[in-house]
Amino acid sequence: MTDTKAHLKRYLKNARAAVLWKLEGLGEYDLRRPLTPTGTNLLGLVKHLACVDADYLGRVFGRPFPEQHPWFAEDAEDNADMWATPEESTEFITDLYRRVWEHGDATIDALDIDDTGVVPWWGDAEVTLGEILVHLVAETNRHAGHADIVRESIDGAAGLSAKNSNLPGDDADWWAAYRGKVEQAAREAAGE
């Protein structure tokens, strides 16, 4: 029988690592620049996920993350957690995320999967640790997907991790031919 809590914790750990991997090798501008109309940027995704983890594996279970930051506040500016100010170094944001992981992992380790907490921003809904772990695995992977696309648009880097691209072929000519095939299919479907 699989230990569901351990399994979910492993998936969360892998998703967290994938997000941080997307930052490797980039300069400050590329880490911070908005690459979608809504301002999505790599370092902002990490900052946001730090807030998400701190709240769900902290406040929800009566184990608040000990550090206070302005973007954690109830009255914080909209999207304050989605971008890094010039004063917030990359090291500060990534180290914060790692400290939040440690705090969250301690919560996971301290509780049983059926232990309950309350999510104030869900109308004071009572939830189990298991439900929150499923939510966090989904949320973190969702943002890892955003990071995949943002990173690919910066320098073409793509894949699951440094050790496993999880992509077919790695030859630029293969990818150009593949992209051309997909483009042609789209044009044909549109009647062009």
Score class of each variant (00 low, 15 high):
H7V: 11
A162V: 13
L12C: 10
D155Q: 11
L12M: 12
W175H: 13
A172C: 01
A106R: 05
A176I: 14
D30W: 03
D155G: 09
A73F: 04
L42T: 12
D81E: 03
G180I: 07
T140Q: 14
H69R: 14
L42Q: 04
H69Q: 09
R99E: 04
K47I: 00
T128F: 07
A106K: 07
T116G: 00
T85G: 05
P168N: 04
W71A: 00
G191V: 03
E88C: 01
V134P: 01
Y178S: 10
W175C: 06
A190H: 00
L35W: 05
K9P: 02
W121V: 10
V118L: 04
G191R: 02
A125H: 04
W83Y: 09
E67L: 12
H143Q: 13
W122S: 05
P34C: 02
K22E: 11
T85D: 01
R99C: 03
D173C: 05
L26P: 15
V134D: 08
L57I: 02
K47T: 00
T90L: 00
L133N: 06
G44F: 04
V137S: 10
F72M: 12
A15Y: 08
L12D: 06
L42E: 08
T128G: 08
E152G: 10
P70Q: 03
A144Q: 11
W101R: 14
P120S: 09
L20K: 14
A84K: 05
A189L: 06
V60K: 00
T94F: 02
D173A: 15
G145N: 12
E152H: 13
H48A: 02
K22A: 12
G117Q: 02
K9Q: 15
Y56K: 09
L160H: 12
E87D: 13
E192F: 01
T107I: 03
K9S: 15
D171Y: 10
D173S: 11
W21Q: 13
N141E: 07
K5F: 03
D95S: 10
V134L: 15
I132G: 02
A110V: 05
E87R: 12
G191K: 03
H48D: 05
L12E: 04
A50R: 08
F65G: 00
R63K: 15
I132R: 06
K47Q: 03
D124I: 04
L111R: 03
K5I: 07
R187N: 06
K47M: 02
V100A: 04
A15K: 12
A80N: 01
A54W: 02
D109N: 09
T2H: 01
K9A: 15
L43A: 05
T2L: 11
N141D: 10
G117K: 00
F92L: 07
L160C: 05
D105L: 04
K5Y: 04
I154R: 04
T140I: 13
W121A: 07
G180T: 05
V100W: 03
R10W: 14
E67W: 02
R98P: 00
A158D: 11
V137C: 15
L167G: 09
Q184D: 07
M82R: 11
A17T: 15
L8F: 05
L20F: 12
E77V: 06
D170G: 15
E131G: 13
G130T: 03
A162Y: 08
K22W: 13
M1S: 12
D173F: 08
H69S: 02
T40H: 08
M1A: 12
W21G: 15
G130L: 06
V100F: 00
D155T: 06
Y56D: 07
T90P: 01
